[in-house]
Each structure stands twice: as structure tokens, then as C-alpha cells.
Design a protein around this nucleic acid. Structure first.
Lengths: 200, 200
DNA sequence: GCCCAAGTGGACACTACTGTCCGTTTCGGT
DNA sequence: ACCGAAACGGACAGTAGTGTCCACTTGGGC
């Protein structure tokens, strides 16, 4: 069903270029103005008309999906390259922080969008990317034994939360790195017996 | 300057009631529809006209500030009650999770809003609430020695991030508690030497 | 019980964004 | 170089939210 070679009607070169420019522009605009940024602003920033944008991406979710797909591909490449090593999981986590995080931060934000069919299609791919590395990291004792995939999604959401500019002048990268550090090692000292006494 | 007793022009009873109803409604609407929820929806949910809402709160930030002020007062009471105990800091953190978190979650979200004069006025109050307990917790070794106030604000933002409904059916409370647990104890096992090798 | 100031909420004009339509331009095969 | 198809982008009408105005209602001092 996916192997029909005669399915390509041959895209025009300029159309392909425009598509790429739009995705790049969307990256920047989403990063600076948030995911709710006016569609129009993205078109203007990309130097195309709004109609062109709509022709390529029916709605903002499709556009978000395109961005995420790029990043997902990059992360999958990292995972492939690192193979079965038990620290692949941590590498993926830090990889998201390392290579500037606006777009990756969309992953958790968008995955929990209810009415976004284009995005739900990506969920299994994210699952596939993370499941095996997480399992191996757990087996090797690099992460706590009770850490689930759901936890990881939430962790990504938490990391995304510190992306918003707080006017403190600290770079996004610096804040992300610090947040990851806090998350990985926890708020309490390693040796301390402090615990969360949420109910007696 | 604040001690003029003749400054009260005597509010009317029904006006006071409406104001309270609006704040309560805003709590629910913000929680379920997010901080960007239409002002109109809040008015309708409170059973008042939009003009009444605007008369009480010139913009959504003033309304947000009113909500936060309530919660802040509650947390200040907790802090006062716990006095100098070194675990007051953790109690404040868990307190936010315990007593349903929609509104408290606004704290970090709103504190980093750039154009929100009504909110910036609350910053020193938040600072005052947290500084001493944090210091005492650090001194007692209950939290890591390098934990700063800025970190704590980011932690609050991170906790807020898991409030968004993810459709998983897990309760907000449950997710918050889990997120706090992860944050407090970290992703790596207590004994493990795993570290974030973000740059070699 | 009366009256006026305080308070109310529906109506209105305004703005920002959305999504589509259509006349014009550009690509690429011949 | 020519031509048809593909792609473009400005223009347009529709919609949702905002903030204000004003004729009407209500509380509370007298």
C-alpha cells in the first residue's frame, strides 16, 4: 500500500523551498511568541502569503507536527548511533537540552493537545524512541527503577516549562541545563533521608 | 500613608458579593480553560455582566493577582504557623500540591509575565514568603546547598506544567504528587553515581 | 417608604485573526 | 521560446473577543 512508485506527481522546486522556509519561520515564531502565535505572523516571517502557508499546512497542528517530525528524526538518529548503550536514555534527554530547545519543547505541549489528529500520529513514534532506552537505563540502574514512560513525558513537559522567558537574562540553554540538573539529582542532598511527607 | 482610617467610601454589600463570585468563577475557568480563557466566559460563569467584571478588575492580570493574593495569604498563614522549623520549606511546597493546585500554579506563570504591573507587585511578597524557609531548609541540609530562590520559582513552574490535562485519566493531584516526588528525589537512584554529562 | 448614588448588564463599535477565493506569476517539459 | 499546469499572494468576508457606554435596577441612609 505504501510501495506505489508512481504516487509522486513531482513537486515544484520553489514550492519545496517555500515549505522549508515556512517550517524554519514557524520554529522561530513559535519559540518567541508561543504556539498560539498568529498564523499570519508565521507567513509574514517566512516571506510568503497566508494562502501558501495554508496550502502546505491545513492548521497549526500540522505545522507543529512537521517541526516535531524533524526533531524526532534527529533524536532517532542519535538513538540509532548510540545503539544499546545504557546511557542512551540520558543522552536523549540532554540532547534535547543541548541543541536549543524551543521546538523539542513542543513535543510534550503538543502531545497532550486533545483535538490534534496530525499530532496523535506522532505519539507511537515518540513511544518507540524512548521505550527501549528507558528500559535499558532502568536495567542498568542509571535511573530509578519505578520510572515510567508517562513520567518521562511529564519530565519533558516540566523542562519545557522553564523555556518561557523570565526576563532574568539567563539564557534558555542555561536555565534548561539547570532544570535538568535539578530533575536528575533531585532537590534533596544525595545522602539525606528527607522525604515528601504529603500525608501522614 | 497606609493608616488613613477615613479612606473607605463604604462598598455596597451586593458589589462585594459579586466580586467574590467573580474571583471564584475565575479560579474555575482559569483552571479548566487556561489563563487565556475569554474574559466573557468568566463573567458568564460568575453570572454577572462583562461590565461588572471590568469594573472590579481592569484586566486579566488584576484578576489573576486577586486569586494569587488569596492563595498567598493561605501559604503565609501556613508559614507563620510552622514558624522556624527547618521543614517549613517542604511543607510549603507540598502544601501547594495538596490543596488543589490550579491557582497556585498561576504563581510562576504570572510572575514571569512581562507586562503585568498588578502582578509584579506580588513578587516581593512571594520572595518574602520563601526566602527564610528556604534558607533554613538549606542550613538543616534538607535541600541541596546550592538551591536558590530562582531555582524554586522554576520548580514551581515545572510543577505547574503537569497540571494540564493529558487525557490519561490520572487526577491532577496524583500527577502533581508524582511530579513533586520525582523532583525531590531526582531521576537517578539515590546511591548511583550517574551524572549529566552535558559537556565533556 | 423615599430617594439618590452606587451598581448592574445588555448593546455597540472596534480590532485581530481566520480561512478561502481568484487573478497573476513562475516553473519546467517540449 | 512557448505553453499549460502548478504555485503564489493579496483581497475579502466571516467570527470571536475586547472594552466602553448608558438606560435601568437596587441597596441603604434619611
Amino acid at each position: 500500500m505504501t510501495s506505489l512508485p508512481e504516487k509522486k506527481p513531482a513537486r515544484r522546486r520553489d514550492a519545496e523551498e517555500n515549505r522549508a522556509r515556512i517550517v524554519a519561520a514557524a520554529r522561530e515564531v513559535y519559540a518567541s511568541a508561543g504556539f498560539d502565535a498568529p498564523f499570519d505572523a508565521i507567513a509574514r516571517h517566512a516571506g510568503v502569503g497566508r494562502a501558501t502557508l495554508y496550502r502546505n499546512f491545513p492548521d497549526r497542528f500540522a505545522l507543529g507536527a512537521a517541526i516535531i517530525e524533524d526533531d524526532l528524526a534527529a533524536l532517532e538518529a542519535i538513538a540509532r548511533k548510540h545503539g544499546d548503550r545504557p546511557d542512551t536514555f540520558m543522552t536523549l534527554l540532554t540532547g534535547m537540552v543541548e541543541r536549543h530547545t524551543e521546538a523539542h519543547a513542543l513535543v510534550p505541549v503538543l502531545l497532550r493537545e486533545p483535538g490534534a489528529p496530525a499530532l496523535q500520529a506522532l505519539v507511537p513514534r515518540v513511544t518507540r524512541l524512548l521505550t527501549a532506552p528507558l528500559e535499558r537505563a532502568r536495567a542498568a540502574g542509571l535511573v530509578r527503577a519505578d520510572l515510567t514512560l508517562t513520567d518521562v513525558i511529564d519530565v519533558l513537559a516540566m523542562l519545557a516549562a522553564v523555556l518561557a522567558d523570565d526576563g532574568s537574562g539567563r539564557s534558555r540553554h542555561g536555565r534548561m541545563a539547570r532544570a535538568l540538573e535539578l530533575l536528575v539529582h533531585g532537590l534533596v542532598p544525595r545522602a539525606a533521608g528527607a522525604r515528601v511527607t504529603s500525608r501522614r
